[in-house]
């Protein structure tokens, strides 16, 4: 198995006014292709900072962050954008574009990646079918339930055949029944389609559904164990 993510002694320091705050204090771990891991921790543990680094949204202050073998810290703005095309981001609050239909939302990352319109459309329909929302593809996010919106967000994250799905509290904004449906879908994608999953959560029950859990506290890894 090859490592899709390799973090070596990651440090991230923010300035709160004039006071430096260490959000990550030398974190190291790796994720193999096809893996399903959860990053668990309470608020302030550094898991959101970790999420931003894994999502190539931010660069570490020191240490090395390799995504698909590429050192994030050494990339310029344009190369970082290209790298993000390989990451399927699923946000806690869905973050769909409200004026676009479900299908157009799924098409958007493909359009960003210069895919032609016909292929975008065909693939968007297929992805919406996988997440069980083909019939509602012309509905706008405001016309969909929270669970449906999250499923559209997952379909969007899968659009460019990402190296891994990065889920930020995927069930944080939905009820328990919908949360179960969403997690079933995520597990199915991992098992049947071989999609690597990295899930950031503060929910211990949810974290236990992953194959491996990295527990974080005060910017450090407390434990890294197989469930």
């Amino acid at each position: 198995m090859t490592a899709i993510i390799e973090a070596i002694n990651l440090r991230k320091t923010y300035m709160m006014g004039k006071v430096p705050v260490e959000a990550l204090c030398g974190v190291s771990f790796s994720v193999e292709a096809g893996d399903f891991i959860s990053i668990l921790g309470p608020s302030g543990s550094g898991k959101s900072t970790m999420l931003n680094l894994i999502g190539a949204l931010d660069k570490p202050t020191s240490g090395t962050m390799l995504i698909d073998g590429v050192n994030v810290g050494k990339l310029n703005d344009a190369r970082l954008s290209e790298l993000r095309l390989k990451i399927g981001f699923v946000f806690q609050s869905f973050n769909l574009i409200p004026r676009l239909s479900a299908k157009a939302n799924v098409e958007l990352p493909m359009s960003v990646a210069d895919m032609n319109k016909a292929r975008c459309s065909k693939r968007a329909i297929k992805l919406l079918e996988i997440v069980g929302l083909k019939e509602r593809m012309n509905h706008k996010p405001t016309e969909l339930s929270g669970g449906q919106q999250q499923r559209v967000a997952i379909a969007r994250a899968l659009a460019n055949n990402p190296r891994f799905l990065l889920l930020d509290e995927p069930t944080g904004n939905v009820d328990s029944k919908t949360a179960h449906e969403i997690m079933s879908l995520v597990h199915r994608l991992n098992k049947e389609n071989g999609v690597s999953i990295i899930m950031v959560t503060h929910d211990q029950e949810l974290a236990r559904t992953a194959r491996r859990t990295i527990k974080m506290f005060d910017g450090e890894i407390q434990s890294d164990m197989v469930n």
Partner: peptide, 16 residues
């Protein structure tokens, strides 16, 4: 601003 953040997270370049 948030929409721009989403677009960038999806891989959109600054130039776009």
């Amino acid at each position: 601003t948030r929409e721009i953040g989403i677009l960038k997270a999806l891989g959109m370049k600054s130039r776009t």
